[in-house]
Structure formats: structure tokens, C-alpha cells
Design a protein around this nucleic acid. Structure first.
Lengths: 207, 207, 207, 207
DNA sequence: CATGAATGAGAGTTCATTCAT
DNA sequence: TATGAATGAACTCTCATTCAT
């Protein structure tokens, strides 16, 4: 009941949760969402199943928590990078690189892809995922990131989605058949697409 | 040994196979590859599991057969459309529309997306899928389709992949959160991307 | 309806039956009774399942028919060998060799062993097998074989069973772990046992 | 982490394992190895299939564990009996009785017989079984049992195998057709065979 | 007689989740 | 909090047998 004890417990609990998180990320990236076994995650963290269920109600809930954490990380990093840029040009370049050379996130992209497909078949999950993404975007002011990168010139006609879609599609393509497109080609294509969009050459809706 | 008997058997067998194919397509589109149960496919076709295994060695084999059949259908249709065009301009337009307004194939694209993800985690399947795609592309001379549409002007720097990637990515995005991008926006974006690529504005590899 | 036609049919039918028999023997010896598949037997004979069921009501029935045929073959051969002996001594020797060097029948022994075990768990089969054996023994006058070999000296205290049991047990032992006993050792042991029994050294029940 | 909890778990786990073992033994003896269903074993122990798989990786593994346990039991009992004998003569007699009156192990022998046949058709299992037997024999010093019983007089020409083979063969014969040989006859025959072997009358390899 | 399509019971195995400790 | 035993539903795949042709 003494405060310090309570804190000790809290700290320990937090540590377990963190370990489970990290382990889950590793296992999900390695095996995918559906194939990942709770037991493996717990074991990877040095615990057993019970510990998992003491901290998360279900595999899906853990995944959501993980998504929010990772998205936050990625977006915060991007924001920091952009804020470190002194002028508009370098900010645009940083943004471009972010999209064109996202190879370190390959496995993560594929994991998200898989979960989106899973969500499509599970309405409740789908709704939760949409909500989750929306709240992250709001919390981290993703719109303003684009605004700041593009000087807020134009209204959104879905260019963001196109960029993401192309990125995800290419990542998947390379994961499934690396010989069909090289990493360099992929970066080049994404860069070009980025230029296209930014150069206002693309986003002209059909009249 | 009687000829008529053999034919009767053959006919019946083919009819069953066709029914199973059609049922499988419906169930796969509805439930996805992994979640689709053999029993449901058989029942949807009006049979029991045993009938399924009399015609296909496994769910995966059926899926491959289905993929080849459907790809063949789609590509043949596209080829026909292109061949019906009298001049180069209309051919290009038909090609553009093919990519920009592929909504009827939404569910199919998602199914293929899911199977590619599945393949990533299952090396043997992956190899088979790559091989299968390659053979289809060769058999139906997909390269020549592009050549004919684009008058064989430029070498391949992966634009085809970019187009497909963007298409698949957007289809998934809309399936999982339709409110994030409208069908019209999607068509518009894909059209613009197509123009971009054709207009040789995109495919300039980094020097 | 003409006689010759009927005979043609009968002949053909008989030929099919014979082929199925021979095929079944091969498959049973190769795969064992339970693991042998009707389809494999039919295919091995150059037919399909239907032909099998046109000639035999079930796998078990085929097996019984097979057992009777083979037993008859083996016993007839033994009888012939014994009858070819001019004197009593050579007859005894032939009998001894029959038991001590039965290696060609290794697979058959094991098959019968397996079926006996199967029969133990299936009462109806067991009863039928016992009956079947009994009728074969009577038809082929197996008792008289022993009598003739041993000059009918002594009453049966089960020596025959002991000899068979030892033979079967050793065949199994060698099949399952050939390194535990050599073929030569086995022949030697069986020969010695035979001598023991014949020399009236063995069958002296405890006083 | 608390010690008591761990012990509770361990105890419960061991109790369940023991129950599963006992149940498996009963079901295997009743139905045979192949026909025994995991579900029946679990139910017989008062559990469901899941519990089974929490304790044993497969039916085969359970069987091997069972074999080792039972062999150990049997051999330990035999060793104890022999060690209780004060003189050489009574030791030999005890050994003789062990072989001649093994009726209580009838069902066990048949189960092992069946598994050996199973092993013949399944190479991996066969190898494992051979290894398993060898390790048991070494661990329990089976050779020395024979040595002690027979005063280490003679080298091994396979008499042990003959004795076992005859025993197993007769057990099977009686199980499948009890009317073909009485229990008394069987004991008598085995006793005589034992005497024969011990009396050095049998193991004279052909010159 | 022979075909071979179709049945359907049944097996082993996996794993998210629950719950007593 | 964490353990880990136990559940039970689900799934794929096999094969002897039936039966319309």
C-alpha cells in the first residue's frame, strides 16, 4: 500500500507490457498477423500465455495498440525530419525521400497490408481500424504534415492515397517477386511519381 | 468401354468441375483464400467434400487453376477490346480505361492481393505463383499487349508494375475504408497516372 | 446367348479376376493389408475400382480368397516335394528345409501376421479366418503331411504350432530389425528346433 | 513465480500425464495402436483431445514413452525375481517360468507385435523403435540378466531371439485361435524349448 | 462387366482463449 | 501479476463403398 510499492508494481507491469509489445512486433513482422501465435509472442518476451492475457484482451487488441504505437513513431520521426529542414526546398526533398526510399519499413508495410485485408473480412475490426487510423491522423496532425511539405498549395484530391497505394503495391510486388522490379527501379518510380504529384502534373481531375 | 458411357462420364465430370470452379470463385471472393473452407465450396456447388478432392488435389491447386482461368479471361477480354480499336489513339484510350475503371474487378484484386501475401509466407507457393504468372504472361503475350498499346516506344523501366501497384493499392484502400477516397477520385488518379506514364513524364530513371 | 459367347464372357471375367488376384497379392505384400488401397489394387491390375467390386464384395473377402489360394499353393508344393522323396530320411530332411529356409515367404508371413492381428480386433473376421484355415487344412489334409513326415509316431502336443510360431516370430524380428539376427542364424535356429522336436527331445511335457 | 504454485502445477500436470498414460495403455491394449483414437484415450482419462496434445506431441510419441515405461517395469520385475533367488538352480527356474507362463502379458505382447508390423511399413518409426529398444536394453542391462541366469556359459547364437519369437508367435496364435493350442500346452512347449536351449541341446549351429 | 463420380464418416492436429492457482 | 493446464471448435485430407451409366 505504500506509494513506492505501488510504483514498483506499476513499473514492473509496464516493463512486461513493453516486452510483450516488442516481442509482438518481432513475431508479427516475422510470421504475419494471422499466423503469429500468442504463445510465440509471449515466449519471445520471456513469458507465457497468461502474461499476455493479463495485459491484452486479445490478439487483435494487441495489434491495434501496436499499430498506434508504431504509426506514432513513424510519423513523429517524419515530422522531426521535416522540422529540421530550414527551407522549403529541402523539406520537399526530405518528404520525397521518405516515400521513395522506405525500404526499412518493407516488413511493416506488408504486415499492415495483411491486417487491412483481414479487416475487410471482419467488419468490426474494419470499423475499429478506420477509427484508429483517423484518431492517429488527428492526434498527430498528419494533414498539417502534408500542408507543411507542400506549402499548402492545393486541395486534396487523393494524391496522398495514390502515393501510399503505389508504395504499398510496389512493396508487396517486390516481396512476392523481387525479380520483377529492382529496389532501385522502385525508388526511381516512386520518386518520379512524387515529382509528378508535386509538380501538379498529376492531380488534374478529368474535367 | 462403350463410347457413350465414357462421354457421359466426361460430361458429368466437366460439369462438376465447372460447378466447383464457379462455386470456388464465389466463396473465395466472399471469404478470402485462407478463410474459404473446402466444405463451403463443395456445398456451394451442391456437392460434398469428397467430390472436391476427386477433382482437385488441394485448395491451393484449385486456386492456381482458378487464377489461370480468370487471368486468361481478363487478358483475353482486354486483348479483344484493344484489337477492336481501329486507330492508335482509341487503343490507348481503351487501355487507359482498362486501368482507370477496373472497379468490377475489385474483389478479384483483393483476393489476389491476399494470396500474394499468403505466398510471401509460404515459399513453395510463392515460387509456384511466380511461375504461374510468368507462364500466363508468356502464353497470352502480355508484353505485346503493352507494345501494341504504347506503339512499342519505350523500354520497360517498371511502369507497368507501378500502374498495377497503384491500382491494387487503391483498390485495397477503398475496400478497407471507402470514405477515404471516392470511386471517381480513384479513377481520376489512375487515369492521371496513366497519362503521366504514357506521356513519358514519369519513366525517366534517375541519371 | 450362344454357348461360345457365354464362354467368352466367362473367360474374360475369369481373366479379370485372376489379374485382380495377382495385383492384390503384389499390393498386399508391398503395403500390408490395412494400408493397401482398393484403388491401387485395381490400378495395378489395369482396372478401376468398379471392376474390383464386380468381383469381390469387399477388401476382406478378396483377402480371404487370396489366403486360400496361396495356402493351397504352398501346401501343394510342400506335398509334392515330400512325395518326391523316396525314403523316409529324405522326406524328413525336405520337411526340415521347408521350415528352416523359408525366406522366400518372408513377406507373405508378415502379411498373414498382420491379418491375424487385424482379425483379433475384428471378431467376425477372426471367426471367418479360423474357419477358413480349418477348411484349408482339412481339404489339403495337412495333418497327414505331418504324419507322413514324422511317420506318424507321436500324438500332437502342439509342436507344429511351436514351429510355426518360432518361424513367424523370427521372420518378424528380422523384418523389423535385421541386425538383431542374421539369416544364417535364423535358419540354424529353426533347423535345431526342428531337430529337437523331431528327436522327441522337446515335446516332453513337464511331469 | 511462487514456489507453491509451481508445485501445484507440476503435480497436476504429472497427475494428468499419469492418467493419460494409464488410459492410453488400456485403450491401446483394447483397440491396438492404429485403431486407438486419441479422442478415446483422452476421454478414458477424463480429458479432451487438447489435453492430450499438451502432454504428448503425437500418438507415436506417447506410444514410445509407454513402451519404455512398460519395458522398464517388466524387466525390473524380472531382475528382482532373479535377484531374490539364492542359488543358481532356482534362478534358472525363475527365468524359465518367466518365459513359460507369461500369459498376463498376452495383450501387451500382441500390442508390441502390432507396433512392430506398423514399424516395418514406417521406416522412421522403425528406426526409432530399434533405437528405443537398444537403449532400454543397455540401460537395464538385459544382457547381464541372461548372463546371470545362464551363468554366462555360452556365447549368443540368437537363442534369446528364438525364445522371444516362439513366445510371441504362440501368444498370437492363441489370441487368434485359442482352440488351436491350450494355455497349458503353450506353457509346456515354451518350457521344453527353454530346457532345450539351456541344455545346450539346441544352440549347435549346423556344422 | 466395368467405369469413375460422389459420398460421408472419421482421423490427426492446431490454437485462441478460459480459469483455477 | 503470471502460470500453464485444459478446452473445444475448426480444418484439411483419406478412402472403402455405393450407384447411375
Amino acid at each position: 500500500m505504500p506509494r513506492s510499492t505501488k510504483n514498483k508494481h506499476q513499473e514492473k507491469s509496464e516493463a512486461t507490457r513493453r516486452k510483450l509489445f516488442a516481442a509482438a512486433l518481432r513475431v508479427f513482422l516475422r510470421d504475419g498477423f494471422e499466423a503469429a501465435r500468442i504463445e510465440d509472442i509471449a515466449a519471445e518476451a520471456g513469458f507465457t500465455r497468461g502474461a499476455f492475457y493479463a495485459h491484452f484482451p486479445s490478439k487483435e487488441d494487441l495489434f491495434f495498440a501496436l499499430v498506434e504505437q508504431e504509426m506514432q513513431k513513424h510519423l513523429t520521426r517524419l515530422r522531426t525530419e521535416l522540422e529540421n529542414c530550414t527551407d522549403e526546398a529541402s523539406r520537399l526533398l526530405a518528404f520525397r525521400n521518405h516515400y521513395a526510399t522506405r525500404s526499412p519499413l518493407r516488413a511493416w508495410s506488408i504486415l499492415i497490408l495483411e491486417f487491412k485485408l483481414y479487416a475487410i473480412r471482419h467488419p468490426r475490426i474494419r470499423a475499429q481500424l478506420v477509427r484508429s487510423y483517423r484518431s492517429i491522423r488527428e492526434k498527430l496532425k498528419v494533414e498539417s504534415l502534408w500542408q507543411s511539405a507542400f506549402c499548402g498549395v492545393k486541395g486534396d484530391s487523393g494524391e496522398k492515397e495514390l502515393l501510399h497505394a503505389a508504395l504499398n503495391g510496389l512493396v508487396l510486388q517486390r516481396a512476392y517477386d523481387p525479380s520483377s522490379i529492382s529496389a532501385a527501379q522502385m525508388a526511381s518510380l516512386l520518386g518520379s511519381l512524387f515529382d509528378c504529384i508535386v509538380g501538379s502534373k498529376l492531380p488534374q481531375p478529368k474535367p
